[in-house]
Amino acid sequence: MNPRSRGQILHALGLIAVLVFTIFPFFWMVSSSFKTQADLLASPPVWLFRPTLANYADVFADQKVIDAVLNSLIVALGSTGLSVILGTPAAFALARYEFRGKSDLWFWFISNRFISPIVLALPIYLLGLQLRILDTHLVLILVYVTFILPIVIWISTDQFRSIPRELEEAARLEGASQFDIFRRIYLPLGLPGIAVSAIFGFIFSWNELLYALVLTRRAVQTAPVVATSFMSGYELPWGKIMATGTVIVLPVTIFALLVSRHMVRGLTMGATK
C-alpha cells in the first residue's frame, strides 16, 4: 500500500468518525420515534425492530403539538422577516456610507451578543409584563429580532461590501435614487448573504427555548417548549418525545434546503472583469 492511499484511508476514517458522532443522535431520535415503548426500553438496545407509526399518530392527534408547530412557524417567520426588512437597509448604509459613529454603531451590534441571554431574561420578562404582551407572538418576535438583527446586519454588510462600487456609480449616472440602488442592485446581488443570515435567524428562532419558556404560558407555546413539557409527570413517553423532535426538526431542514440554493456565490460574476 503506498503512502498516498494510506493517507486517503486515514482521512476517510477520520471523516466517518466525525460523521457518526454528529449524525448518531439524530439517527437515534428518528429511529426511536418508530419504536414501541417496549423496544425503546429494551436493554441492550435493539437495532432491528418492527417500526410503528403509533407515536406519530399520537403526536398529530395532540392539538397541543399542532398549535406549537404553528406558533413556532409564526414566531420564526415573523422575527426573521422583520430582521431582514430592518437589517438590509442598515447593512447598505454601513457598507456604503461614511457617517459619524459608524464604528461605534458597528461595535454596538457586535457587543449585543456578548451578554448571556439568561442575564436579560428577568428584565425582559418584567418589561413584557408592564407592556402586557407576555404570552403573545409579538413578545417572542421582538425578543428574537434583537438576536437575529445583528446577524443579518453583519452578514449582509459583508456581502454588500463585495459588490463592485462601479455598479452603484453606473446606476447613479443613470439617474437611480439611493432607494433604487438598494432595491434594484444591492438586494438582488446580496441575496446569497441575506439568505444565509435568514437561515441562521430562522433556525435560531425555531430552536430557542429559554425565552420561549420564560415569556409564554399557554396561548403561544412554541415547539421546543411543548417537547420538554412531555417530560413532566410520572411517565416518560420516549416515543412521543422522539416523534415530536423529528416533527420539529423537519421544517428547519426543509427551509434550509429551500434557501440554500441562494447561498451559491457567483451571482456577481460577469459584472466586472
Binding site: 463592485p164 460574476m269 466586472t272
Partner: peptide
C-alpha cells in the same frame, strides 16, 4: 450637480453591467 443631473453617460473600464 448630482451625476444624473449633468446628463452625461459613462462607460467604465470594468463595464459595470448589472449582472442580474
Amino acid at each position: 450637480l448630482e451625476p444624473a443631473q449633468r446628463k452625461v453617460s459613462m462607460v467604465f473600464q470594468s463595464y459595470a453591467l448589472f449582472p442580474h
